[in-house]
Design a binder for these strands. Structure first.
Lengths: 146, 146
DNA sequence: TCTGTTATTGTAAAATGTTCCATTAAAGTA
DNA sequence: TACTTTAATGGAACATTTTACAATAACAGA
């Protein structure tokens, strides 16, 4: 796993290359996602940041904007299902897909080489330039089947 | 492809079995999706129905509710990407996944037996009872790569 | 360090999506 | 058909997400 210092450098370089600015708010959001390995809604992140950093001003709109920026830059990835809205996680770990329990909301991550390979072939077959792909398996987890 | 009459019967049976009621609004939405083989937002459907059936009252909330109902019943399926919101289509055709062009919004449908099979195996491996699954390949279509 | 330029911010307003509730309409029974 | 029960509806309230805009903060150059 990449260190926070390296991630931060990478983010700063990305911003510089696109004439964007490095702000306290953007750093806070990135750091929060780095330190908390789970899936969060924008509201989750906004509340936690206000709580833990009462001295730094931050608006909910900035959280939404920053998450979109980070997602476009492939630093975070999002997942959504049902009416629950989008949830974000740091996307630097190895690419993976998700199993989602519709009863308890539990999210399990998995990776499957066969599926990855087929996806590449399918994109090729349709002359599609693939930039991203996602797979979700929705259902009931072991506990919730009881 | 199933005929509209058969689809309607199927829908009515489903409603009856769940103590739900068959209404003009629900029929209009089902019919619209049957007759228009493409992906629509709730707003799209709401506007088209108001336009083509000025004599029948319908509210946007009913469109959202009916689409959710139809999706839960596996009669329609939805797809979402980027900030574009959810789009719905009749889901009675054979299950398929999607290629989505981020430049022009074009949606291509495909089906791959290998992927389907792997998904089943993965669900089994995690003791997950799979009720649904989706795959999206996002990128640039042939035209938009130029 | 100071200054000018420009992206970013928070706030408020707009847009989009969901829920509540009183009224209406569907469907079973007589 | 009339009556009764209960689900569905539209509209409004509410919640979530996005956008507009004026003030602010980041950054480059001197």
């Amino acid at each position: 796993m990449i260190s926070y210092e390296k991630l931060l450098e990478q983010f700063k370089t990305l911003l510089r290359n696109n004439q964007l600015k490095f702000t306290k708010q953007r750093e806070l959001i990135l750091k929060f996602l780095y330190e908390n390995d789970a899936h969060f809604t924008p509201e989750d992140i906004y509340m936690k940041l206000k709580q833990h950093h009462p001295n730094i001003k931050i608006g909910i709109a900035t959280v939404y904007r920053t998450l979109s920026l980070l997602e476009e830059s492939n630093i975070v990835s999002s997942i959504s299902f049902g009416s629950a809205g989008k949830k974000y996680e740091l996307g630097l770990k190895k690419h993976h897909d998700h199993l989602i329990c519709t009863a308890c909301g539990k999210i399990i991550e998995f990776f499957d080489e066969t599926i990855e390979e087929r996806q590449k072939q399918i994109a090729k077959q349709f002359n599609f330039h693939m930039t991203d792909h996602t797979m979700k398996i929705v259902g009931l987890c072991e506990k919730c089947q009881a």
